[in-house]
Amino acid sequence: MLSTIRTLWYVFLHMFHKRVTIQYPDEKAYLAPRYRGRIILSRDPDGGERCVACHLCAEACPVDCIALQATEDENGRRYPEFFRINFSRCIFCGFCEEACPTYAIQLTPDTEMGEYKRPNLVYEKDDLLINGEGKYPGYNFWRVSGVKIGGKDKGEAENEGPPVDVHRLLP
């Protein structure tokens, strides 16, 4: 009984405490760079699309709100033909970013994406692709990967030897 009264008193005293609420549209809260907000697709340091259409983000997505189709340019570089995120389903869990092997898909500290019409929340590749590297500068998947693309032949990736001549039988 006494503890109840003490509780009442302590709660009553909160009347004179400072309020913690941030008056949102008037004041902006600080969101860390790793905050999980609007999703973007980044570019590699050479300005090419980082996304290689591996489908891992779509696979990791617990609400299945990512759909894409892989395609290849004439030189064998793979990229998404279309890349769609239905933000009206997205729960901003960040699994897609964690799954991404090329740092292409990233969540940003932007949460202001309210819309009056749900179709406006369906973002296509044009809406997602930014002209920068985002949070992870410097990484280019194609420089590490052993696949030949335009401008990078076999054996020219990091840590690769030149292609072997298989008709040579010298030890």
């Binding site: 709660v11 009553f12 909160h14 009347m15 405490h17 309020r19 913690v20 609420t21």
Partner: peptide
């Protein structure tokens, strides 16, 4: 709602 907020350090 105002009083509850007041006692919970909100607006």
């Amino acid at each position: 709602r105002r009083l509850l907020a007041l006692w919970q350090d909100r607006y």
